[in-house]
Amino acid sequence: MRRWLRNAALDAVRTASGLAALALGVVGAFPETVSACSVCFSAKNEENQIAYLASTGFLTFLPLLLVGALLLWVRKRTQDTEQPRSPDHS
């Protein structure tokens, strides 16, 4: 693949993920409760609502953290011994 194509692809990925993060931020910050939604207010109190939000965030990000730590550890252990193989194909 030519270099500019590769860079363009990388740029596209970066832009897309940036836009996705922005979209998430926007929709997360300005929720609209739909009047037809009969079940949008079931939280018992403000504290309960916050607790659910916090525990959702905690449970969601913790596994990524664990895997990230494991990958870093593996990388650290392998990179000194990794050596290129004489290539027989592209």
Partner: peptide, 25 residues
């Protein structure tokens, strides 16, 4: 063991989240 510990950490994460929610109810 490391992999097993990762699963265990998630088990306790589940308990801790449940505990945090139960506190408020």
């Amino acid at each position: 063991t490391l992999l097993f510990v990762m699963a265990e950490v998630m088990l306790f994460a589940g308990f801790i989240s449940a505990h945090a929610v139960a506190k408020t109810t």
